[in-house]
Design a protein around this nucleic acid. Structure first.
Length: 566
RNA sequence: GCGCUUGUGGCUCAAUUGGAUAGAGCAUCAGACUUCGGAUCUGAGGGUUAGAGGUUCGAGUCCUCUCAGGCGUACCA
């Protein structure tokens, strides 16, 4: 239900009938229950333009607002706010209408776009570390969300598989022998470290490594084969992590750096032709605005840089993938880089003017002391280790409360532990740095996945206990049911906002508010007690069922499984 | 040096993009069980939104300066 746009239409009609012109009508949620459900704050601006008293204008508008359907009551308050109360019967009808809807009342966008979401982007030379967590799950949520809303999403995993370090790695792989290497490849950190040791201790090895870099680039078959087997092994690690994280990235979504390799000279040619780049100190550079430091697109030795690859990728995504919107889910620290690359791409005509280019930046994960997240000895924390730890902790927590069989416990621990980490990450507004705290993540209190899971399990428990058909209409009988019904209908507005701004935390905040309201409803309004009449019982069962459906769908978009029992 | 960015109760985070008395959760204190799962709910205390000016009907949000962090700054990605 697009409540806000429905209300906008009503207000627009009222304004027209009152002979007032307004360009855009923005409806916002009421800040307090006593101010109603929604409010329109635009009158103050209009009054300024018309040079009239805002309260006077608000009263004029008020007279023309249709209060026969959706709206129950309107009121002018403060300097000129128009407060809006929705009608109970309307809420009841609308919620009843979506009881059987698998999309729980969420429609599809009118104009679907083709959206490229670039996320995860691990480096093949190393194991995935905690830094990849945010990109992977924020990107995946965005992709799932846009798809659900009807856009055509193209996932792109821009893996780092090209560069000088690969010479060293494949030389080491060759030395181990392609058959005997499987053991050491299990841990890429170890593999990398050993390769580095060889590189430093042996002049022959180092020369060979450098030689191999050139050979891969020139397409030497033997080296490419070694390289490919190394990439396959490394990608295998990533796929295990994606599997564990419930992140929907497949092999066919991989479009690696190496893919763009042969397009790089063309990028330079285009930039030269258009007079965008110049030669400076032997390197091909782009100077933007008044910036003194350039963006280097080709090194003085002829090598290319990541800006060049990104330009080639932008060109490909525009020309071949024909994207309307391209989202880069990458660390916020690369903001300048993307700003520059986007500017160059548009200037050079590599991307059409109409394409929306967005850097979906996110903050860094910190430890409890507010420092960048590291292991005790200062190394990077491997993502698998962190996730495994979360599962272990979840298992301990669940075990304390209820008796489960060992298999059930393991399965529960997996979905709950991983879900808790994901939820905690997604619930923070993405651009700020955040402090990683596993205990808080696996807590049942506050805005955590377990609080949602608990509410869901409670609802399922009621339905099991009822153990019969649930039918009939929803009736909105009191203030708390009014709030609950309204929250349920707000799901679509929430998802739209989240998609537009690429902010997963909009969804978690909504779910938390929904569940909080549901918990209050649950306390105040008994469902299965004997003294509740049949129609009320059914209505409340329906409300509970619908709440469960929305929680499930919401968590599903975040890539988190719900469980019927905790 | 230049550029970008952040600063919100003791702690961790919000604030519908300029709207009403800045909201939650931890923690603290006080309540509610003949439990539809108490892993819950109700309430209280705790804030000059780093500081100082400015813009206007109205500022956590916009502008200027100061203070304190973080990040980026010519051939890594």
């Amino acid at each position: 239900m697009k409540i806000k746009s429905e209300l906008s239409k009503i207000i627009e009609t009222a304004l027209t009938n009152a002979n007032i012109n307004a360009d855009e009508i923005v409806i916002s949620d009421a800040t307090k229950p006593e101010f109603g459900d929604y409010q329109y704050n635009g009158v103050m601006k209009l009054a300024k333009q018309l040079k009239k008293n805002p309260r006077e204008i608000a009263s004029m508008v008020l007279e023309h607002i249709d209060t026969t359907g959706m709206i129950a009551k309107v009121e002018v308050a403060g300097p000129g706010f128009i407060n809006i109360w929705l009608n109970d019967d309307w809420l009841a009808t609308q919620t009843t209408a979506i009881l059987e809807d698998s999309r729980v009342g969420v429609g599809k966008v009118e104009k679907p776009q083709r959206v490229v979401v670039d996320y995860s982007g691990p480096n093949m030379a190393k194991q995935m570390h905690v830094g990849h967590l945010r990109s992977s799950i924020i990107g995946d949520t965005l992709a799932t969300l846009l798809e659900f809303l009807g856009d055509e999403v193209i996932r792109q995993n821009h893996i780092g598989d090209w560069g000088t370090q690969f010479g060293m790695l494949i030389a080491h792989l060759e030395e181990l022998g392609t058959d005997g290497n499987t053991q050491e490849l299990k841990d890429l950190e170890v593999f990398y470290k050993n390769a580095k040791v060889r590189f430093d201790e042996s002049e022959d090895f180092a020369n060979k490594a450098r030689d191999y870099v050139v050979k891969i680039q020139s397409g030497d078959e033997h080296c490419l084969k070694l390289w490919q087997s190394f990439i396959d092994a490394s990608l295998g690690h990533c796929e295990e992590v994606y599997e564990q994280l419930n992140v929907n990235l497949k092999k066919e979504d991989v479009r690696a750096e190496s893919f763009y390799n042969d397009q790089l000279p063309q990028v330079i040619e285009t930039l030269k032709e258009k007079g965008i780049s110049t030669n400076s100190n032997g390197a091909e550079c782009v100077f933007l605005g008044d910036d003194e430091t350039p963006i280097i697109v080709q090194k003085s030795d002829g090598g290319f840089l990541y800006a060049t690859t990104d330009l080639a990728a932008l060109n490909f995504r525009d020309k071949e993938l024909k994207a309307d919107r391209i989202c880069y889910v990458v660390d916020a620290r690369q903001a300048q880089h993307f700003k520059q690359v986007f500017t160059i791409a548009k200037q050079a005509g590599m991307v059409r003017e109409t394409v929306a280019l967005e850097h979906i930046g996110f903050g860094t994960m910190m430890d409890k002391g507010g420092k960048p997240f590291k292991t005790r000895d200062g190394g990077t924390v491997k993502l698998v280790d962190l996730l495994n730890e979360a599962v272990v902790r979840a298992k301990e927590t669940i075990k304390e409360r209820e008796a489960h069989s060992e298999e059930a416990l393991d399965a529960l621990a997996k979905s709950i532990g991983i879900g808790a980490v994901k939820y905690a990450d997604l619930s923070i507004s993405r651009e700020s740095n955040y402090i990683f705290n596993l205990e808080k993540m696996i807590s049942f209190e506050g805005n955590t996945s377990l609080y949602m899971q608990y509410a869901y399990a409670r609802i399922q428990s009621i339905l099991r206990k009822h153990n019969a058909e649930v039918s009939g209409e929803i009736m909105v009988g009191d203030a708390i049911e009014h709030r609950l019904a309204l929250m349920l209908l707000k799901f679509e507005d929430t998802l739209s906002k989240s998609a537009k701004e690429a902010t997963p935390h909009t969804i978690t905040t909504y779910l938390y508010d929904l569940v909080t309201v549901f918990m209050k409803f649950y306390e105040l309004n008994p469902i299965l007690r004997d003294d509740v009449d049949e129609a009320t019982k059914m209505s409340r069962l329906q409300l509970a069922t619908l709440t469960g459906n929305v929680i499930k769908k919401g968590l599903e978009i975040l890539g988190i499984d719900v469980v019927d029992k905790i």
